[in-house]
């Protein structure tokens, strides 16, 4: 077995053996270099690297800018809402009705009328029994209440 391994080694081309020798030497040099560098680093007192100036500037500039943008986003709608409600009506300062406000008031009226009409619609046939039940319930509860009052 030993003989076979030696024979195999001897049959290896010289180029491969040189390559392996080069690799082994390179690895040895690399190990020595890494040991040296690490020893040098270990001897040095640890000082954390300062943060890059770009990141510091980014933090100090962006934070106030972001805060200002958020504040503006919150205040502008609130101000416009308040300003809208503080107006007495759709009449502008010069006495002429503001067209947009007048249109909004008309729209509101139409919407209110629509809701009223829907609420006052007759109960659909399918829901009629329920409507009757609720009527009965309210009437019976009214009678009960009336009895209680008379008992007192």
């Amino acid at each position: 077995m030993k003989f076979r391994r030696e024979a195999a080694t001897n049959s290896e081309p010289d180029a491969t053996r040189d390559e392996v020798r080069d690799l082994a030497e390179a690895l040895s040099l690399y190990r020595s270099a890494m040991h040296h560098v690490a020893d040098r680093e270990a001897a040095r007192p640890f000082v954390p690297a300062p943060r890059p100036a770009r990141i510091v500037g980014f933090r100090f500039l962006l934070a106030p800018a972001l805060a200002a943008a958020i504040a503006a986003a919150a205040l502008v709608p609130a101000y416009s809402h308040f300003h809208h409600h503080s107006d007495s009506g759709p009449v502008a300062k010069n006495g002429q009705p503001n067209a947009a406000d007048a249109r909004a008031a008309v729209d509101d009226t139409v919407l209110m009328n629509q809701i009223d009409s829907e609420l006052s619609e007759d109960v659909p046939d399918a829901l009629r029994p329920l409507a009757d039940v609720s009527d009965q319930t309210t009437s019976s509860s009214a009678v009960t209440e009336k009895k209680n009052v008379t008992q007192e």
Binding site: M34, H35, A38, E41
Partner: peptide, 11 residues
């Protein structure tokens, strides 16, 4: 062991 650990992490 510090030099060894530092060397491993540095490498």
């Amino acid at each position: 062991y510090r030099p060894r650990i530092l060397r491993f992490l540095l490498s």
